[in-house]
Simulated assay, not measured.
Amino acid sequence: MKRVVLVISSLSPGGAERVLALMANYWAAAGWAVTVYTLDDGTQPPFFDLDVAVQHRPLGIQGDSANIIVALWNNLRRIAVLRKAVLQSRPDTVISFGEKTNVVTVLATLGLGFKVIVSERTDPHAHKIGRLWDGLRWWAYARADLIVVQSQAALCYFLPEFRRNAMVIPNPVAMPSALYSERETGSSPSSIIAVGRLSQEKGFDLLLRTFARLTTLHPEWTLTIVGEGPLRSKLEALRDSLNLAGRVSMPGLVKNVYEYLARASLFVMTSEFEGFPNALCEAMACGLPVVCVDCPGGIREIIKPGENGVLVQRGDLDALAEAMHRLMSNATERQLLGRRAMDVSSAFSVEKVMRMWEKVVQ
């Protein structure tokens, strides 16, 4: 029986967390022994459901540090606690998620003889982690057995000697089989949806300002922004200042985003950078037409402009407004793009992506 340990900071809402939960459940269903170690204390239960066969063990070693001395002590403790936990699990392979967790995991497993795979979960060109952590990342990744990135764009960040020990594995796209017919019969003809953490890099302020420019032209259209985060109050204030209170809803975290995607007719993504965005792939798999800012990350490995979606130049609000206006005005084009977008469900299917993971784990 294959034994795998997965390490991540927590199982809170997020793309990396969703992918880890999917991987853990997939392998548990296949009869593997799967243990998930999180650095948090487990006070908050996992946002994503785990199979009963998956062992989830919070280690209680997460937290902020007041200064560099405390930070050093906390990280030494994290390394020691994680090392002991991994030894108890006796895995064949350890897979960690997220750059800082990757560093801690490599340090914790030095000399143990287990295969260690580190997984980058965003575009390192745009996501800055500080000079110290960046230096530690280079040191740690040189000692990992494999580096996994989500896109060719992310792979290009690494020096050639690192690329030789790296592999691109995209995120899997999981979708209920009956979803598309549900969306066709139940969707509103005038509904835009966006999904993501309410944080600066998602660019929801730009989306609100752009939508405000189109409300007179499209008085029947509404916007729903699904997600939660530190900018909620600022985004709500901006929404209200733009007189959009009756047109824009922000329902917060939802367990099943597909229920919202099924009722929408257009998906818009305005991120400053991405890794391999789950929300975009899930929207496309539902048959939604998409308008997406051409930001750093794996976007162009998902969207073929004009064929299965619309890309607009980063920072060009006029182009974003024009693209949204065009699709809001043209149901035929929306349907055509939506049908073509559904191909992502086969291109990045769970079975295909998990075969890629199993090849590197074996």
Rank of each mutant, 00 (worst) to 15 (best):
L244H: 03
F97Q: 02
R164Q: 12
S265W: 01
Y37Q: 03
R131S: 14
A174W: 02
T38E: 00
G275C: 09
I147R: 10
I169S: 03
L110E: 12
S65R: 02
R18T: 07
E228R: 14
L76P: 01
F276R: 02
P58Q: 06
G113N: 08
D343Y: 01
F158W: 13
S188H: 10
G113S: 12
L217G: 11
F162P: 02
A323I: 09
K304D: 13
I169Q: 03
N74T: 02
L317E: 12
Y141N: 09
L242A: 06
F47W: 11
I79K: 04
Y180R: 08
E17M: 05
H218V: 12
M175K: 03
G203S: 10
A264R: 14
I192V: 14
V248G: 07
L320F: 04
N67A: 00
L238Y: 09
M354E: 08
T35K: 05
V4H: 05
K234A: 15
R137F: 09
A29V: 00
A140N: 07
R3I: 00
D316C: 09
R339G: 02
A154F: 13
L82E: 03
G227Q: 14
R247L: 12
L261D: 02
A30H: 07
I8S: 01
V248E: 11
R197L: 10
M23T: 05
P296N: 15
A53P: 00
V360N: 05
G227M: 14
E358F: 06
L288C: 10
A279N: 03
R300S: 04
M167C: 04
A29D: 07
A194I: 08
L6R: 03
V268C: 10
R90H: 11
V226P: 08
T38H: 01
E228D: 15
Q55C: 05
S12G: 05
C295E: 15
A341K: 08
S271H: 10
E322F: 08
D240Q: 13
L320Y: 07
A85F: 05
G98Q: 10
P172C: 01
V268L: 11
L11F: 05
T43H: 07
G186C: 07
Q200T: 10
R137H: 12
N278T: 11
A321P: 04
L337Y: 02
R239W: 06
L20W: 09
G275T: 09
L261M: 15
E201L: 10
T332N: 11
S96Q: 04
G130Y: 14
M167I: 12
A245W: 07
D49S: 06
I193R: 11
V312N: 05
W221S: 13
S89F: 04
Q55P: 00
M23W: 01
R209C: 10
P296R: 15
C281V: 11
P124D: 13
C156L: 14
A194P: 01
V118P: 04
L337T: 13
S187L: 04
